[in-house]
Design a protein around this nucleic acid. Structure first.
Length: 474
RNA sequence: GGCCCCAUCGUCUAACGGUUAGGACACCACUCUUUCAAGGUGGUAACACGGGUUCGAUUCCCGUUGGGGCUACCA
């Protein structure tokens, strides 16, 4: 099989597009087929190289490598025109001299007031000599496709049989007056030229499919397998768009989502491997993927589940595997990591983080506790403990000052603190929690003794002292 | 308006005529723990509605309702 992903270069890779690309890629990998990338840039006004690059970067980030391309639709205009000429010569297309203004007037005058307007074929009825005369006169024209009055149906690989009728379809334009091709014509021409066997695309193309099938028939070419995958919706059930927040894969990359997690999550949106599987390896996905287990229903994009999944990937990865994305994020935050061993810190915090951003923030605080800021829960705890907070901190500090460098390890610190708490008749938690808050600004962290060990003796003591001066004593 | 698609917990989904309708996220308890958003255990929560077909429908058919898509010299 030969598959293609054909995004238009809108300047960003929409998660819906990414999911479509993923399904194409999975099917190609599963069947040993070829995955082709083609950029639809016939709308040259919007076309820029930078926009194309964003799409390429997004696919690469997700690990979706293509076997051929990227091809550019805009480079094939000569072939598109040749196909249009063939249709014209065979009487399956015709010249239309109606101007945009005339069309607009016709639209306004039609029953529906414009929506659902179908061209009335007045130019098709023009006598040949009049057409020749207008062409000779240099009158501008578009070429329309003569929609046959017949049933157009196909067996969709995800929906089953879908049936349209030519009488409901318009004689749509296939070549603009500037002799550039229109989308539907270009797609069919390209898919034929590239011998595409499976067209896997979004649901929103279902209504384009009968037009394209009519074109295949007129060109005398057998149609490929069509598979229309469901759309991705926002939480309000509407087509996912920018007003829902992050919709581009680049947005999620910036928010600290790992590519593996994103791919896994996207795969499960509209497809199910069965047997309650959730976390899937790349090989597992490829092996299990099939067109007939694709959902017909649109799916809502649930960021909470994406983040959960990202957390799963995060805690399953080793500190070494995480070092790339982590250091990139730390650099972006302006944190100096030179000469510091990050691995031990990462081990302590990765299972509690859901995004690389959170991971980086926590690592940064352990590198330099003074950058921590109090969150609401920590603030509430301080208030709740009242004088006990400062008392616990004093006890901790006094005891930790006694601990030498040779003792500054998780076991040594724990022994110290236990002893000190006992001596002061405090519960161990009344000593530990204040330390945690002072060092991280939060109520959440790895065990406090490990936290102290990883932060180091001097930085820990310095931060605790700073905090004692600040903490309320009454 | 016309054409088309869709319909299981709040969300992602399993079920391919017979199940106490299963899992995951989220949520709520409990548990482990010096804390926790981590781990563990448990819980609340769904077959849109009405007709058929059938011994039997979440499952097949029709309709209703509801949602969505398309309807450009955009892609």
């Amino acid at each position: 099989p030969r598959l293609r992903f054909a995004p238009s270069h809108t300047g960003y890779l929409h998660v819906g597009g990414a999911r479509t690309a993923l399904f194409n890629w999975l099917y190609a990998k599963h069947t040993g087929g070829t995955f082709i990338l083609r950029i639809e840039d016939t709308d040259h006004a919007r076309s820029t190289e930078a926009h194309t690059q964003v799409v390429l970067d997004g696919l690469q980030w997700l690990g979706l490598d293509w076997d051929e391309g990227p091809y550019f639709q805009g480079a094939e205009i000569a072939r598109h025109r040749a196909d249009v000429e063939r249709l014209l010569a065979a009487g399956k297309g015709y010249r239309c001299f109606c101007t945009k203004e005339e069309l607009e007037a016709q639209r306004k005058g039609s029953p529906g007031g414009g929506d659902g307007f179908k061209y009335d074929r007045r130019c098709w009825r023009l006598p040949p000599e009049q057409v020749a005369e207008r062409v000779a006169r240099g009158m501008p024209f578009v070429i329309r496709f003569l929609m046959p009055d017949e049933e157009i149906a196909w067996d969709d690989a995800v929906h089953g049989r879908i049936t349209f009728h030519g009488r409901d379809l318009d004689d749509f334009v296939i070549l603009r007056s500037d002799r550039t091709p229109i989308y539907n014509l270009a797609v069919v021409s390209d898919d034929i030229a590239m011998t595409i066997t499976h067209v896997l695309r979004g649901d929103d193309h279902i209504s384009n499919t009968p037009k394209q099938i009519a074109l295949y028939r007129a060109l005398g070419v057998a149609i490929p397998v069509f598979a229309h995958v469901p759309m991705i919706l926002g939480t309000d059930g509407k087509k996912l768009s920018k007003r829902h927040g992050a919709t581009a894969v680049g947005d999620y990359q910036n928010q600290g989502i790992l590519p593996g997690a994103m791919r896994n999550f996207l795969a499960l949106l509209g497809w199910s491997p069965g047997e309650d599987r959730e976390i899937l390896s790349e090989a597992g996905m490829i092996e299990l993927f099939s067109l007939d287990s694709i959902q017909k229903k649109a799916a809502v994009f649930d960021v909470a589940k994406l983040e959960w999944m990202n957390g799963q990937y995060l805690s399953a990865m080793t500190a070494v595997e995480l070092s790339g994305p982590l250091e990139r994020e730390l650099a972006r935050m302006g944190v100096d990591t030179s000469g510091r061993a990050l691995a031990p810190i990462v081990e302590g915090v990765k299972s509690r983080a859901r995004t690389v951003l959170q991971l980086a923030e926590r690592v940064a605080v352990r590198l330099d506790p003074s950058r921590g800021t109090l969150d609401d829960k920590a603030d509430a705890l301080i208030k709740k403990m009242g004088a006990g907070f400062a008392a616990g901190l004093e006890v901790a500090l006094a005891s930790l000052r006694q601990a030498g460098v040779d003792e500054w390890n998780p076991d040594g610190i724990l022994a110290r603190l236990k002893e000190a708490a006992d001596a002061a008749s405090l519960k161990i938690g009344d000593v530990m929690q204040p330390i945690r808050v002072a060092l991280t600004g939060t109520t959440v962290s790895e065990p406090v003794n490990e936290l102290l060990a990883v932060v180091g003796r001097e930085p820990s003591l310095r931060q605790l002292e700073r905090f004692v001066r600040r903490a309320p004593t009454a």
